[in-house]
Design a protein around this nucleic acid. Structure first.
Lengths: 166, 166
DNA sequence: AACAATGATTGTTGCACAACAACTATTATT
DNA sequence: AATAATAGTTGTTGTGCAACAATCATTGTT
């Protein structure tokens, strides 16, 4: 065996250590409390608003995006509508479908959610610039893979303890 | 200005990119679904079992760890007890206090939860070993800081939608 | 035109979860 | 000994959330 090539068990141990480290770091800087405090929204709803800021979605698309029964999507959108954050509109091509748009308040809430989620922990700001560059490059590689769904965060389907993606 | 030293705005942008990348990666490999499917537990309860596997905790300690009212901790422990995962025992020094221990089933559940959470995404296993080593080193640094609560994941206080970290 | 499928909604049922107030038992303090 | 504080629990109130079945309106298929 090539002595310069680590064994697969060494790879596995390194992968596990790296995963544990990044999980602890990201989980340790969870932003759900901030989302709750500033927006009175859970992560799931906040991420949905961010998604809707990009383009309106149908109820089916929303149900699929957050992986719930369509009736749950209907009720969830009802709650956002009562908050004045979204509105339902007609679909241009198909009268069965509705399109969910953000309101002005919803756009502002989505921008706040993005700001909260995008704000890096202070530890990153004081990291050695070479390490920071390495992180950025490595995660760009990891997120570009086909098994990675894409750079944007996905809304959680659960209500935890477990209930809400809130 | 020292041309070898990036400006603080460059630092901020790099920190933000790094943060977005790692958040997307960790969030994109969320293990809550697996925890739900295999253990019928949310992340919060699963992490509590992992914590209890290390040492029993009082109700107050549990309430503080998950940042809820003591009555909510009581009810949460009730639910775990009904599942046969924990039991309450007497405190050796103070009869006001109860100690929550894991049962055999609870220990097995905690081990399963740890296995689920510790399993790295396949993308990490095929990463360049130097990148993997860099990630491990950088996160060890990030997690060692005083602002970092420690390497182990912290149970989330919400029940999201938001309800349960499940 | 008739029938099948789709999209959204309503109603039902069930469950999880939280804070607050009040309570009892126990320990700490005076 | 009397009082204050702590620990855990119970009851109450409120909210969020989900799946399922059934329904109606609309579009797609035959």
């Amino acid at each position: 065996m090539n002595p310069d090539t680590p064994t697969s068990s060494q790879d596995a141990a390194s992968a596990q250590a790296a995963w544990a480290g990044m999980q602890a770091f990201v989980t340790g800087h969870d932003r759900r409390r901030d989302l709750r405090v500033e927006l009175d929204l859970g992560a799931g709803k906040a991420e949905l608003l961010i998604k809707l800021a990009q383009a309106p979605m149908t109820l089916r698309e929303i149900a699929q995006a957050v992986d719930v029964d369509p009736s749950a999507a209907t009720v969830g959108v009802d709650r956002l509508e009562r908050r004045g954050l979204v509105r339902r509109g007609a679909h241009p091509d198909d009268s069965r479908r509705k399109l969910v748009h953000l309101t002005e308040a919803g756009l502002r809430a989505a921008a706040t959610a993005e700001r909260i989620l995008a704000d890096p922990p202070p530890e990153l700001a004081v990291l050695d610039p070479r390490d920071l560059a390495a992180l950025t490059r490595i995660f760009a590689t990891l997120n570009a893979g086909p098994s990675s769904a894409g750079a944007e965060a996905v809304a959680e389907p659960e209500a935890e303890a477990e209930q809400k993606p809130e």
